[in-house]
Design a protein around this nucleic acid. Structure first.
Lengths: 110, 110
DNA sequence: TACAAGTATATAGTATTACTTAATAACGTC
DNA sequence: GACGTTATTAAGTAATACTATATACTTGTA
């Protein structure tokens, strides 16, 4: 499939928020989960710019914990603002998704 | 609803391609159709940057015709490359859409 | 000891895209 | 002629994902 970068804009951050909302997790693990989901080309750098942004916008709580497998991990959880942002993300996604569905169905003559 | 700009990236161009594929049309009319679809905040300038890009990437045929309502209109139709790009757009959309659905459904415990 | 590989975080710089704003122009009508 | 609608264009901005790279800790192994 062709490059999906542009279409991921605004979507990837929502995915990260959703993954964090499932329970405490850290950057490297989030990257792996995104790749498992199917976004196989997502790399650490991309996820870290997102988590940095979440920190900067104060949407997450942070707790640093040691790891037996490498350097310390920064665990994230959503705070109230983060949950609000997540809800807003799904709202926007549902809106666009419904509009695109409308457009597509018109195409197929349904 | 909050600003959906970022989420429209990569999506709006696909919508324009789809609208053109329905039949010969021009920038101003495309803008109106997008607004009717629900993207009420889309303005001419945004659509023209997209049609300019389509021209530059040679995805459209262009025919200039006079209008009784104002200045001449530039009518667009999709060429073979444009249709390919449109198909690629829907492929990418279906992919991301299915992944997001997966993520959302896991959320709801379905 | 040295080195590679896996885990983990961080950051500077780039490309793409939608948006903002404004200019220009043709036409009808008041 | 002024104004509203139709219609195209262009310069500049902001946001985001990606590229590439650096750093550091642990384990295995040669």
């Amino acid at each position: 499939m062709e490059n999906i970068t542009e279409m991921l804009k605004g979507v990837l951050e929502g995915c990260v928020l959703e993954i964090i909302s499932r329970g405490e997790t850290y950057g490297y693990e989030i990257t792996q989960q995104l790749r498992e989901l199917g976004f196989t080309d997502v790399v650490e750098g991309t996820v870290y710019t997102i988590t940095m942004r979440l920190e900067k916008n104060q949407l997450v709580n942070i707790e640093k914990k040691p790891s037996t497998m490498g350097p310390p991990r920064k665990f994230y959880t959503l705070n109230a603002d983060g949950q609000e942002k997540l809800a807003s993300f799904w709202e926007k996604w549902n809106f666009i998704s419904s509009k695109l569905k409308e457009l597509k169905e018109k195409k197929d003559g349904k």
